[in-house]
Simulated scan of single mutants.
Amino acid sequence: MAPDARLLTPHTPAAYDVVFTADFASERQWVAGRSWAYPGGGPVNPGDDKLDFLVPDAAYSRSGVFRATRRADGLWNTGLLTTEGSEEGFLLRSGDVLEARVRLPRETGAWPAVWTWRDGDQEIDVFEYHPDHPDLLEFSNHVRASGSYVRDRGVRPGAEIGLRTEFGARSVVWWVDGRRVFADHRGVGRGWHAYLIVNLSVCAGRYHPAPDPETTEMSYEVSELVVRRPVYGAGAPPGGPAAGSR
């Protein structure tokens, strides 16, 4: 049911428009194999306990299946896509809602994530997962130093789950399979905006176990990812509460 227009304030969404539908094969939407979230744009990030060696090879990310394969030097070729530096340059904004469907990896050492980044900061983790904690998801708001570990009966290696994150100015809210599981009550502020990153990292062993010696490949899948943006009632400032951000 649509909201009663008489009850709308400038900060009450009347509806949500889809403003981004992920097409991982699109080079206009996504850049593959580099990110300024990694030192120098990559390809490695050992300081974050990662064995990653980012590669632009389409087979590692462009199908929506994010892969990692062992290299002879002990690192792993890994798949990463980001909207930062792409032709479209899509930015999430305060008030946006991201929905995704993912299939979790099975292999020890796999570290899948959907997250945001801009100018060395602005990181919100839609989710992180480690199969050594098979029923646990990690949610973090690094913008305002909050987060949570959430156990869920539907979370396990190889499971397909639905994720929803509301990037509220006053509270970031996370949902799993239609259930609200955590609200941080800190939010991102009205002017927040950030690029999207989707990737599969590999743990080096400091925080979570490194891959088993016999493991040579791992993967996880993002089959859907959309972003919805609020449409505000009469009297709202142009662009809604995130006016001035892209």
Rank of each mutant, 00 (worst) to 15 (best):
D96L: 00
E107Q: 07
D57H: 07
D52F: 03
L54M: 03
L91I: 15
V143A: 10
R93V: 06
G235A: 06
T116R: 13
V231C: 10
R180A: 14
D132K: 08
L196S: 09
G120V: 00
S63F: 02
D184H: 09
F20Q: 06
H130V: 00
E214I: 02
T21L: 04
D177C: 06
M1H: 13
L225K: 04
V222K: 06
I197E: 12
F139L: 12
D73I: 14
A110R: 03
S201A: 13
M1W: 14
W192V: 10
R34A: 02
T21S: 09
A100L: 03
R180Q: 14
N141K: 06
V102E: 00
M218Q: 10
G244D: 13
Y60M: 05
F127Q: 05
W117I: 01
G89E: 04
Y16S: 01
V202T: 12
R229W: 02
L196V: 01
P134Y: 08
V126I: 07
I161N: 02
S171R: 15
T78N: 01
R180L: 10
D49P: 08
A113G: 11
V227A: 07
E27W: 03
A204M: 10
G178F: 07
G33P: 00
T69E: 12
D119Y: 09
A72G: 15
P134A: 09
W76Q: 06
V97I: 07
R246Y: 13
T116Y: 08
R28K: 01
P209W: 03
Y232E: 00
H133M: 10
G120C: 00
L8F: 12
V173M: 13
D57G: 03
Y129C: 10
A194D: 05
T216H: 05
E221Y: 03
R206E: 09
G240D: 04
A234W: 12
C203T: 15
D48K: 15
G89C: 08
V97N: 03
W175K: 04
G178Q: 09
P131H: 08
D4L: 00
E221H: 05
G205E: 02
R144N: 12
T21D: 08
R93T: 08
T108V: 10
Y16K: 03
W192E: 00
G244T: 05
E160S: 07
